[in-house]
């Protein structure tokens, strides 16, 4: 019963994630694609929670669903209902081949990396809240990378603001 319940939850979440991921590719309406993505991302967040990574799971919801997905939907609504977006045209065989090649290389690299890591095969027996340990680790052992990433993100923010600024004076001149 113990193991059954755990495995049922795991496979239910994994199946939701994979099926929704496939539907992201198959679905034709671009807004439907975004909502399949919602289902897929939620399933991944559920997997994180199931494996005891509570902070990571909620961050997945906050960043991907609350941030990126809303941004995607926003982008779709700001653009017109373009028939080219709704129904993807069949492209030339050369671009098809490029796409397949890139996907294959990416798949092989990811698969080899995933295989080479010795993963724990089961979820930890007693999951404990991870936030405190994460915070301590970020501000002690990993404080330099943490600060570097902060500076990098600040630079990115400034860059985005610079690129998106209004050029009022220039348009008048």
């Amino acid at each position: 019963m113990n193991i059954d319940f755990e495995i049922i939850v795991f496979y239910a979440l994994a199946a939701t994630g994979v099926v929704s991921g496939a539907m992201v590719l198959i679905a034709r309406d671009v807004v439907r694609v975004a909502f399949w993505l919602l289902s897929s991302l939620s399933a991944v967040a559920g997997l994180y929670l199931h494996l005891g990574a509570d902070f990571l799971g909620l961050t997945q919801v906050l960043v991907y669903i609350g941030g990126i997905l809303v941004l995607i939907l926003f982008g779709i609504m700001m653009t017109q209902r373009d028939p080219g977006l709704v129904k993807l045209e069949r492209k030339s065989t050369r671009s098809m081949a490029t796409g397949v090649g890139v996907s294959l290389v990416l798949f092989l690299v990811l698969a080899s990396v995933i295989n080479s890591v010795g993963w724990a095969s089961r979820r930890p027996a007693s999951a404990t809240p991870t936030t405190q340990d994460l915070g301590t680790a970020l501000l002690t052992d990993y404080v330099l990378p943490f600060e570097l990433i902060s500076v990098l993100l600040l630079v990115v923010l400034c860059g985005a603001a610079y690129l998106a600024r209004r050029r009022v004076e220039q348009s008048h001149a």
Partner: peptide, 18 residues
């Protein structure tokens, strides 16, 4: 009584927008 209570609220708050 989640250890991450307020973070949870911040995370799910965006679902309504969707």
């Amino acid at each position: 009584d989640l250890d991450l209570g307020i973070f949870f609220l911040a995370a799910v708050g965006s679902l309504e927008a969707i």
